[in-house]
Amino acid sequence: MSRLSSSPRISSGLGVAGAALLAVAVLVALAAPLIAPWPPMQIDLRARFTPPAWEAHGVLRHLLGTDNLGRDIASRIVWGARISLGVGVAASLLGAAIGGTLGLCAGYFGRGVDAAISWLIDVQLAFPFTLFALFLLAVFGGGPGPVVVVLALATWVNYARVVRAQVMALRGQDFILAARAVGVPSGRILLRYLLPAVAPAMVVVGSFSAAQAILTQAALSFLGVGVDPSSPSWGAMLDLGRSYILSAWWMATFPGVTIALVVLGANLLGDWLREWLDPLAVSRR
């Protein structure tokens, strides 16, 4: 663990901080009905554009202000945690299933299978992803389901590449060779021997991928093809806030800060996990 030698305490401190950020976000999402002062969809046209409480004309009952329809920003951020985190995690898991499977197959079977899967990976990487996502959502229409699928298409490559590389390294190792020699079927080798071996790396990739999925989801909402425009997802709030950036800065600022904090948390956690769970990658470097 040479690269940790410089600052192990700081590194793990950051990791814990990241985990704490995420934990808070998850708790907020779970306890949304208890925490949020207002229903997230409650419209009050007469209270449009109320600024945050500490600004002139701000009121305490709308701590972070209201949006263009007089909905409470703080409440929408709290409820939005459910959508944004849920979609991010779901996309990351689906990506793991697709990418893990393909990566295992590519690494283990090699040759034609590997060539085909590597081709898929490279095609996917060469495609301007944002456009790709726009197309697909134009076809499927919005909604959480299609968005999760599209985001999974964005993240599967991460898993596939890591798993493939690791399986290639493991394939020649004694315990695999031995298993093959005694006639253990391929499927069993993949599931019982190789999958557990690559699982730690997948957890690491998972935390980064969830972060990426949350960011991409926000970008898609921003381009107008998000989960559901009126549901309080953080990305949709940002998109809405953009139109009022000159007159109501708080509409875009607070959801953006929220996204940055949660993604930061996931990345810090991922870094930390990588150092703890993936000695292979660290030692290979």
Binding site: M41, I43, L45, N68, L69, G224, V225, P229, S230, L240, S243
Partner: peptide
């Protein structure tokens, strides 16, 4: 039409 912010605003208000 998702391109127009005011369309969404109006529809959300009408919806409520």
């Amino acid at each position: 039409d998702g391109r127009y912010a005011d369309a969404q605003e109006t529809c959300e208000a009408v919806g409520s």
